[in-house]
């Protein structure tokens, strides 16, 4: 019996190692074909055009950063606000109703949110609010990603707020603090490392989120470099999915190998963020 479990555990480790190995090998092959200097396009209108062997890293990095930032602008106030409401204000009855709703949102397939971003957020919301040149743009995709990561922001923040001992709240009330002052001056500062962890994990999810960025970002695997959130844009993940699907599969050489390079980049960034977040979570646990 033990053997079965041991094999299962070992297999997972081997698979992870194989993934990393494949990524690194592919990335090295890519860098043999395209030198590092080739990762910044020096054309007049630089951009990410893999079929033409133009791999402008700033295009996809900017796209990722813009969409993730918009996502965080949506997710931080909504997620943290929800967490504060649930942990500090909601009655146990209200909590019993709201928590499952948030969990449903957490389990929603991202393709559904992607479609929602494409068919509602972009034409109805963003188009009316900001009058962008193109209906599909990074703002709409960013808002969609934001909706998708609200639950993770809310639930980790709520855990860390709930971990603040009730004795600290009582101490605050005991010297005549109101509820709001207690939340702002005692509970939030005491929970700050958990909230920072929630933020970092949410950022890591936003960077890694694929479906919404691909569906609602407004580009089809290639596009010009832009720094305007109201332009269509390409995230690292969207560049990946597009390179992996459709007729691009028929290609050989750099346009294929770039997949490994982008995958490795994504892997390193999100793993780094998760490691940092883990440190913060541990700090919360140590304190109480």
């Amino acid at each position: 019996m033990t053997l079965i479990f041991r094999i299962a555990a070992l297999t997972s480790v081997v698979i992870s190692a194989l993934i990393v190995f494949t990524l690194v090998r592919g990335a090295i092959e890519f860098l043999r074909l395209v030198p590092l200097s080739g990762l910044i396009d020096d054309a007049k209108t630089p951009g990410w055009f893999p079929r033409r062997n133009r791999f402008d890293l700033p295009t996809v990095v900017l796209g990722t950063l813009i969409m993730s930032s918009i996502a965080m602008v949506v997710a931080v106030p909504l997620g943290l606000g929800t967490a504060i409401f649930l942990a500090e204000y909601a009655s146990s009855r209200t909590r019993r109703i709201i928590k499952p709703i948030i969990e449903v949102l957490a389990g929603m397939p991202s393709v559904v949110v992607g479609y929602f971003a494409l068919k509602f957020i972009a034409p109805e919301l963003v188009a009316n609010l900001f009058q962008p040149d193109k209906i599909q743009n990074m703002t709409a995709a960013g808002i969609g990603i934001g909706i998708l990561i609200v639950p993770i922001m809310a639930s980790i923040s709520e855990d860390s707020l709930s971990a603040v001992p009730g004795a600290l709240r009582e101490a605050s009330y005991g010297v005549g603090a109101r509820k709001s002052a207690t939340v702002i001056r005692v509970v939030l500062p005491a929970a700050v490392s958990g909230i920072v962890a929630a933020f970092i994990i949410a950022v890591s999810r936003a960077i890694g989120e694929t479906m919404v960025a691909t569906m609602a970002g407004g580009l089809d695997g290639s596009g010009a470099r832009t720094s305007s959130p109201l332009d269509p844009g390409l995230s690292i993940t969207a560049a990946l999915t597009n390179a992996a699907g459709g007729s691009d599969q028929a290609l050989v050489g750099a346009p294929v190998k770039v997949l490994f390079f982008l995958g490795l980049l994504l892997f390193v960034v999100t793993m780094g963020l998760n490691l940092i977040a883990d440190k913060f979570v541990r700090r919360v646990r140590q304190k109480y």
């Binding site: 004795a167 600290l168 009582e170 009330y173 005991g174 010297v175 005549g176 005692v186 005491a190």
Partner: peptide
Amino acid sequence: RRRIGMVFQKPNPF
């Protein structure tokens, strides 16, 4: 609560 202070069972400094 400002006029009637309280000290608790377990020391609870912030």
